[in-house]
């Protein structure tokens, strides 16, 4: 038998667990594929929106608005990222390994959230900036360049919205535990039920997708829902906190 250094584990349990969760996400090919796919979709749609913008059919040539418009679709990538982060535990019985290494379930669950945020935020920044750069290139001289303050708020808001959406999705998937039903349910909500309710009901303004609209769709904030960007952000954060808590309770209570 080889011997292990008799030292106690280094670092706090939470730090170690979060680091392990980051390693897990990074060593999953699906994570990189999803991130690359989101960037690609963002770029292609930025071309489409910018082309439409040049023809004046969106009524504006603001490089910021057009460059952020693909977020409405690329959020699908972050929904998938969040779902895979949660459901990948249930492939190959990995969750058994995870829980024999980190048996404190709430701690494990929270370190998963931290790891997902650490991966989702830089990915979101790249995807958002990618869309903006492509839109600017296509618009060329027609681009109306925003003041830096607006630009920073726009990019930061969009990236925060995408990362929060990933965390919300991973919480839902933690409860559902299976990839296809979780992805199907979330996509149908975010892309079909959500937008349809948005146009037809008042309470939709408080739902996580519509409340988050103001975080990235600045010129449309008034049109979609009655909340200001700040209040909307507050509602999205509240939904995410609620979802993480429900998922933690469910993960703790159920047999793995």
């Amino acid at each position: 038998m080889t011997t292990v250094a008799p030292t106690r584990a280094r670092g706090s349990e939470f730090t170690r667990s979060s680091r392990a969760e980051v390693l897990k996400l990074l060593s999953l090919p699906a994570t990189l594929l999803t991130a690359a796919g989101s960037l690609l979709v963002s770029a292609v749609l930025a071309v489409a929106f910018a082309t439409a913008g040049r023809q004046g059919s969106t009524g504006t040539a603001s490089a910021l608005d057009i460059g952020l418009a693909p977020i409405g679709y690329t959020q699908a990538g972050f929904i998938i990222l969040g779902v895979l982060a949660a459901t990948s535990e249930y492939t190959g019985g990995q969750v058994q390994t995870s829980l024999t290494v980190v048996p404190r379930r709430v701690l494990l669950h929270l370190s998963k959230v931290v790891a997902l945020v650490l991966i989702a935020v830089p990915t979101a920044l790249v995807v958002v900036l990618g869309g903006l750069v492509v839109a600017d290139l296509v618009l060329g001289d027609a681009a109306v360049v925003p003041p830096f303050g607006d630009f920073a708020v726009g990019v930061g808001g969009a990236a925060a919205y995408l990362a929060l959406t990933a965390v919300l999705s991973s919480s839902v998937a933690t409860v559902i535990r299976r990839t296809i039903p979780a992805v199907a349910g979330l996509l149908v909500y975010y892309f079909i039920a959500g937008p349809l309710l948005r146009d037809r009901t008042a309470f939709a303004a408080y739902l996580p997708d519509t409340a988050g609209y103001g975080m990235w769709f600045h010129s449309g904030a008034g049109r979609f829902g009655s909340l200001s960007a700040l209040v909307g952000t507050g509602f999205v954060v509240a939904w995410v906190v609620l979802a993480v808590a429900v998922a933690a309770v469910s993960f703790r209570a159920r047999d793995a």
């Binding site: 106690r8 584990a9 280094r10 670092g11 170690r16 667990s17 680091r19 392990a20 969760e21 390693l23 897990k24 060593s27 999953l28 090919p29 699906a30 990948s88 492939t91 190959g92 019985g93 990995q94 058994q96 390994t97 995870s98 290494v101 980190v102």
Partner: peptide
């Protein structure tokens, strides 16, 4: 106890990281 898409080494690496 490992995800099929990961390599064997990547699996053991995260387990080691989690346990310090």
């Amino acid at each position: 106890g490992a995800h099929r898409a990961r390599t064997g080494r990547a699996h053991l690496s995260w387990v080691a990281a989690a346990a310090g």
